[in-house]
Design a protein around this nucleic acid. Structure first.
Length: 585
DNA sequence: GGTTACGTATGTTCGGC
DNA sequence: CGAACATACGTA
């Protein structure tokens, strides 16, 4: 700018009349520049082809954030934060979609008082077991919080073992604290290596909580008005049973490795059970024969209770405005729950959530990352690392969970949507669409893609095909049953299955054929790709996804048109958004 | 231009008795 | 008249 000025003065260019105006403008610009120079400018996240998505999108509505997150089909997650500069200091929440590493990159550079962030635990997403333990110190001066936490963890660990056969000790529990003078506050995040809960509703309203609901009954005075509220109300009616969904492939993992072709697609008989359950809208464990062996009756819970002294259990009760309650907050298991992040505080407060001094959890060190970053990843309730032996824990009590009179089925449907996206025209991978389209139009075929479903978790694309029914099982076209083509983006292969009853009963899956490299997204090219899953683990997960797909199908077929209409709108919006983002590069 | 989800309280409809 | 569903509002 100075060199330009030396050639031509501002007055010369604009005329003398405007000189004053120009100088004023220059001054105000300079002051703005100075102001911004004062503020920290964060280092930007280095983009790498194989690295995480660098995308960082802020939304005013949670729904939009999820729409974007799902439609991009990448490693994105939704966070919420309280915006200071919005509508005064009301703590208006905004929603952010980005990947974990990118989030941490910027979040960790923020000043402490700017960290007002929450993890949004997505409805229907597999998650860790987590607890919010809190009480008002001023009315519970006799309580020894640390001791209570110790008892509580012991109790939960015993329950996990008794009910789910999951081994867990205090060393597996990330223990965070945000206590103040007034309030005792802890977050526990269980780092179970081979188990996770189906979703946060199961994690909370179910198992451990039900046991906890038992406790007040036994240890507190008869007048406990607080429990007469929601689903926990019928305390004498214990859940009839608790089930553990063990991955069907699990038991024969070593075998599976050696026969990829057949093993990959196995969908065992429990699928049809599942189907039925979903269709009828009852999550009725009694119908599920295949899980009989996993049944655990409530007598086990009693055993656990018996192994604890009433004295210890009593210590977990605290005074509150609702009377005597357990110091474990049962209100944190709602859908899309915002759960305060590690190192964040609430707007207007200064109690950041940090590792408690009593914490005994210690992750194996990942030297690539800082210690804090490692803790951050572990603290994320929905950050599940899949492993081959992963058990998905579920629990159904016999008390229906209907919200606003919505039927159970509706809830289930939306929870399925959280794990995948689907649509009718273009999938997130147009090149793959085109490839599939070519297959079903070769030899003057007239096939069309009737529908697609994408499973984020396993990078699996399922295409429903119409007007082209060639089945490799029978070596000709089916007369009346349609086929589906499945693309495994992770493995870079495709194969065929179909809806014919015969093929279906034998779980027929065609051989796999490699996808041409040019139809895969760029990030799949490199062999050095940072695989999160070993081959057998992927196998496992893919089978699980196919199972989910069958469930979803069953679900859709049993759902009224009205339900579908509403979802179509969402899908159209999602696809449109996606198309736009593709066009914009 | 802009939150979300849920409990409580209150209002409305409907069917049985 | 009560059960089931609908609407409004306050709270976190």
């Amino acid at each position: 700018m100075s060199s330009a000025e030396s050639h031509l003065s501002t007055a010369g260019f604009y005329g003398k009349k405007n000189k004053r105006k120009w100088i004023g403008l220059e001054k105000s610009i300079n002051s703005v520049v100075k102001k911004h120079q004062k503020e920290k400018i964060p280092k930007s996240f280095p983009y790498r082809i194989l690295g995480p998505t660098t995308s960082w999108q802020i939304f005013y509505r949670q729904q939009e954030a999820f729409q974007y997150t799902k439609s991009t089909a990448k490693d994105l997650h939704v966070f919420a934060f309280e915006s200071e500069s919005f509508e005064g200091n009301t703590g208006q929440r905004l929603y952010l979609s980005t990947s974990y590493p990118v989030f941490w990159h910027y979040y960790s550079q923020l000043d402490e008082d700017k960290r007002l962030h929450y993890e949004v635990i997505p409805e229907g997403a597999v998650c860790k077991l987590y607890f919010d333990l809190e009480y008002d110190k001023t009315v519970n001066q006799d309580c020894d919080g640390d001791h209570m936490v110790a008892i509580f963890i012991q109790f939960v660990c015993k329950a996990l073992m008794a009910i789910f056969n999951v081994s867990c000790t205090r060393k597996d529990v990330l223990d965070l604290q945000a206590s103040t003078e007034r309030k005792f506050s802890r977050h526990l995040i269980f780092q179970m290596k081979n188990a996770a809960f189906k979703d946060n509703i199961h994690a909370g309203s179910s198992k451990i909580n039900d046991i906890k609901r038992e406790m007040p009954d036994q240890v507190s005075t008869p007048d406990t008005p607080n429990i007469s509220t929601n689903q926990g109300c019928v305390k004498t009616e214990l859940p009839t049973e608790i089930k553990v969904e063990t991955d069907p492939v699990n038991e024969s993992v070593s075998e599976e490795k050696h026969r990829v072709n057949t093993g990959h697609l196995d969908v065992n008989e429990s699928v049809s059970e599942e189907k039925h359950r979903v269709n009828t809208g009852h999550i009725d464990v009694n119908e599920s024969v295949s899980e009989e062996k996993n049944r655990v009756h409530t007598s086990h819970i009693d055993e656990i209770l018996d192994s604890f002294s009433i004295e210890d259990l009593k210590k977990l009760m605290v005074n509150s405005k609702n009377g005597d309650v357990l110091f474990c907050d049962t209100g944190v298991y709602t859908k899309n729950r915002n759960f305060r992040l590690f190192l964040s505080s609430k707007l207007g407060k200064k109690n950041t959530l940090v590792v408690a001094s009593e914490n005994e959890y210690c992750r194996k060190v990942d030297s690539q990352r800082s210690e804090l970053e490692n803790i951050f990843y572990d603290s994320l309730v929905s950050n599940i690392e899949y492993s081959s032996r992963m058990k998905i824990l579920t629990y159904d009590d016999n008390i229906s969970h209907h919200v606003n009179g919505l039927p159970r089925r509706k809830q289930d449907k939306s929870s399925k949507e959280a794990e995948c996206i689907d649509g009718y025209s273009k999938s997130p991978y147009p090149e793959v669409d085109e490839f599939i389209q070519n297959i079903i139009t070769q030899d003057s075929g007239k096939g069309v893609i009737r529908h697609w479903t994408y499973f984020h978790q396993g990078e699996l694309l399922v295409y429903e095909i119409a007007k082209y029914r060639y089945c490799h099982n029978i070596g000709r076209h089916h007369r009346s049953n349609n086929i589906m083509l499945i693309v495994d983006l992770h493995a870079g292969v495709w194969y065929q299955k179909c809806h014919d009853p015969d093929c279906h009963t034998q779980n027929y899956k065609s051989p796999e054929w490699p996808l041409p490299k040019n139809v895969l997204p760029a990030s799949y090219f490199d062999d050095d790709l940072d695989l999160e899953m070993e081959d057998d683990e992927l196998l496992n997960t893919t089978a699980e996804l196919e199972k989910q797909y069958m469930e979803k199908q069953a679900n859709i077929s049993g759902v009224s048109e009205l339900d579908d209409d509403g979802d179509d709108d969402d899908l159209v919006a999602a696809v449109t958004l996606l198309d736009n983002s593709i066009q914009n590069g």
